[in-house]
Amino acid sequence: MKLRQNATTALALVAGLLFLSPVLYSIWMSFQTAQSYYRGGFEFSLGNYGTAVTKFNFARYLVNSIIVSGMVTLVGLAVSTTAAFAFARFDFKGRDLLFGITVATLMIPSHITLIPNYLTLARVGLLDTYAGLILPAISNGFAAFFLRQYIRGIPRALDEAAYMDGARPLQVLWRVIVPISRPAIFSMGLYIFLGEWNNYIWPLVAVGKEDLYTLQLGLARLYSVNPGEGLIDWPLVMAASTITILPVLFGFFLVERHLVRGITMGAVK
């Protein structure tokens, strides 16, 4: 019985590796020299990473991606949590309408905003800036919707006890609601961060200056500067690709459960 269980686990592992083999092989390839790749054989080298960082500025792109995704996550969580708190705990005129407007953003395909947002940012001079990359991405009601559902599940008695002690609304939010909602906020943070990390079409439109490229943009440009059979330095491209996916892979192994829960909750509930 034990043996059989181990055998199925091993089989599952093999199947999983096979499924992921294109990506795994690309990581493997990134550690070999272009010469050895095209000649056949394997020559270990970190040279591709060196080239990606020195000749192609991928360290800068990595920093840009961290800044942009990090800011979108922080600001997004801040405005979503305060709004969710109000939607869950206050009775006010127009609440249902405002909540409806928030939830409806889930249905609106972002591509309709592409041209107008480009024009808006051009008008206020925010194209080719971090702010131009960050601000439009915060216009998303999903986290507020999700957190409102979560906050409604927290007993009101806890808020009332705090108000009785003389707390003000923001203090109740910060001292009572946020600590209890930490798992939900964490899930939403991951969800926002990942979505923004992998965002491609908006940076493509909003950024022309090379030193504001995010990893996605840098990788796409690196790949497209040398298209055409045989001319591509595949090991170099794969090193850049590995830099782009590795933070997500690490994060995945750290927080797999939270992530899956956040994503399925969003879909099923």
Partner: peptide, 24 residues
């Protein structure tokens, strides 16, 4: 354990950068 391993492996591409996947 085996189904959790496989689920994890299958789930990874959904959160991996589409640009990377396109390049690979």
């Amino acid at each position: 354990l085996s189904s959790r391993v496989l689920r994890g492996a299958m789930f990874l591409p959904t959160i991996t950068s589409t640009v990377s996947i396109a390049v690979v």
